Computed example of a mutant assay.
Amino acid sequence: MELIYKGKTKDVYRDSADDNGVVLFFKDDMTGKDGVFDPGENQVGLTVEGSGRAGLKLSSYFFEKINALGYPTHFKSADLDSRYMYVHPVETFGKGVEVICRFKATGSFIRRYGAYIEDGEQLDDFVEFTLKDDKRQDPPINEAGLVALDILQPGEHDVIVENTLKICKLIKEELAQRGFDLYDIKLEFGRDIKTGEVMLIDEISGGNMRVYKAGQKVDPLELVDLFFK
């Protein structure tokens, strides 16, 4: 396979067996700081054996659920042993846009708005857009800014918000059925290279969400173990 992009937690390859295919390799690297996992960090903070396979296993589960409901995603299939996810080729919005759905206030939301809300306080399904930019600490941006910078086309923002809420509520309900409380989750969207359709991309793993059980934070590996128990 030909390496296209080397990322912090995943590497992207062109699939030599499929001219119209891309392969994501899930690494055992996790975002965080000083050896502590944090999905909001912009750097690799630790390497945990098995975390790549765990992230792919949970991602595959949710992508299959989402695909079955008819929401467009880049997911085609996965090979857990090789830690490969086979996906449709897409183009990112600009240099990458992250979409965070917040059900409860925590993390960077509290760091910014802690004067107005307590950690863990309920939010009304708040959807936030940030630009993927490590140097500038992933700055938040609104619809007008995304359109003005030619990152999104008019109307795409509303499509992303609508799909984000549907997808995240599905994930929240799946977790709740197993006794987990989803505080927030980070998604990414892009455009299908052929059709231009807005679709869910990247991954849906414990490394992209904050999950609690009985008031205690659940780390990504433990989440996968308990989820599939």
Score class of each variant (00 low, 15 high):
I66Y: 01
N42I: 15
F62R: 02
G55Y: 06
L175Q: 06
N42D: 15
E2Q: 15
L123G: 10
K104Q: 08
N20V: 07
L221E: 12
D38G: 01
Q43S: 15
S108D: 14
A17G: 09
Y183C: 00
Q177S: 12
E41P: 05
A105M: 08
S60M: 06
D119Y: 12
E197W: 06
Q177G: 12
H74N: 02
G7R: 00
G190L: 07
V161Y: 02
H88R: 10
C168P: 11
V159C: 03
G35F: 04
I100Y: 03
K166D: 14
Y113W: 13
V90T: 11
K33P: 11
T9S: 04
M209N: 08
S82V: 10
G96Y: 04
V99G: 09
V147L: 09
Y86F: 13
I193C: 13
L149P: 06
S59T: 11
L165Q: 14
G35D: 08
A17L: 08
F227M: 06
C101E: 11
R112M: 13
Y212F: 13
T195A: 02
F62Y: 10
L69Y: 11
K65H: 01
V127L: 10
F93L: 05
T92R: 08
K8G: 13
I167F: 05
H74G: 00
D15C: 06
S51P: 01
D11K: 03
K172S: 14
Y212C: 06
E222I: 09
D184W: 10
D181M: 09
A54T: 03
K132W: 07
K166P: 11
E203Q: 06
R53V: 13
R53K: 15
Y84D: 03
Y13I: 09
P220V: 11
